[in-house]
Computed example of a mutant assay.
Amino acid sequence: MAIINRTPDSFYDAGRTFDLDAAVDASLAAVADGADWLDIGGQPFAPGTPLTTEEEADRIIPLIQEVRRQSGTIISADTFNPEVAELSIKAGANAINDTSGLSDQEMAAVIAATDAHFIITHSLAPPRTPWPEPTYQDVVGEVRDFLSRKIDEAIGLGVPEKQIIIDPGHDLNKNTLHSLELTRRLEQIASLGFPVLASVSNKDFIGETLGKARDERVEGSLAAAVICLMKGARILRMHNIAPAASALHLTEAVLGWRKPLSLHHNMKRRGIRVRAVP
């Protein structure tokens, strides 16, 4: 899953894709680099002044429409606003990525009326609100319990089970030790039986662990993504798509989920060179 932000204040890209043309170009480039999915957002979850529905929609709806016109790739709208979610689905989005963890029950009604997938993310604070020094007795157990409750809530509000995806929310109202523990024990989140999304790319837990600035975290992000894949994640939300695709495709091949693109090394038999996997 490639991250495309139409925001001037995104923590990583710092507004490089705020312009519509730049966002369209980045989206299509990500697909060319190996992304299977584009996550398009117009408002961060991080503390700040909330956008109006109109402001957020103006940022992401034209982008969703244009990408959908040019590509058949999966598109999700990264939004916690039910009205923006509804507009996004009508514009061509296949999923809603709600980083607020179903803080507004109207979101469930929007999803239930469509066949769009619904990503439920663990967080403690309301969107755009600070939550200093979060504490947990057992971060993995508490995140798992939260997601289990939210799954039941969504289903009770009419969202089909098959449309639900879960995200433990690395770094969202969590410190570095919490995010490392979630990564180490991610299989306990996957044991809930729903597809797991891991959003680890260039996060602060990687920077603090390695002592790296935001533009120096690619290698750490790849390591975290591979660990999450091995621990049960099935969607990896990443910034640097080309290296991420290579790292994850190689991991999938090791696990037997993906065939090599070609076979030449030590494969020559009776004068015939095998050029591609059947």
Rank of each mutant, 00 (worst) to 15 (best):
I40F: 07
I40W: 07
Q43H: 08
Q43K: 02
Q43G: 09
P44T: 15
P44L: 12
F45W: 14
F45N: 14
A46V: 15
P47T: 06
G48W: 05
G48A: 03
T49M: 06
T49Q: 11
T49W: 01
T49P: 08
P50Q: 04
L51D: 07
L51S: 13
T52L: 00
T52K: 01
E54K: 12
E54N: 14
E54G: 12
E55Q: 13
E56Q: 06
E56F: 01
D58Y: 01
D58P: 03
R59C: 04
R59N: 06
R59L: 04
I61E: 05
I61W: 05
P62V: 01
P62K: 01
P62Q: 03
L63D: 11
I64V: 14
I64Y: 09
I64S: 12
Q65G: 13
E66R: 15
V67P: 13
Q70K: 15
S71Q: 01
S71P: 09
S71Y: 00
G72T: 10
G72I: 03
G72V: 06
G72A: 15
T73L: 14
T73H: 14
T73M: 12
T73A: 15
I74E: 15
I74P: 14
I75C: 13
I75Q: 10
S76F: 10
S76L: 11
A77I: 03
A77K: 06
D78S: 11
D78N: 09
D78V: 03
D78C: 08
F80D: 04
F80M: 07
F80L: 05
F80H: 12
N81E: 07
N81R: 11
E83N: 14
V84E: 02
V84H: 08
E86Q: 13
L87F: 10
L87R: 15
S88N: 09
S88F: 02
S88E: 01
K90P: 03
A91L: 08
A91R: 08
G92R: 10
A93Y: 02
A93S: 12
N94R: 14
A95M: 14
N97H: 03
D98M: 08
D98S: 04
T99Q: 13
S100Y: 01
S100I: 01
G101R: 08
G101Q: 04
L102F: 05
L102Y: 02
S103T: 13
D104V: 00
D104Y: 00
Q105P: 12
Q105H: 12
Q105T: 11
E106V: 02
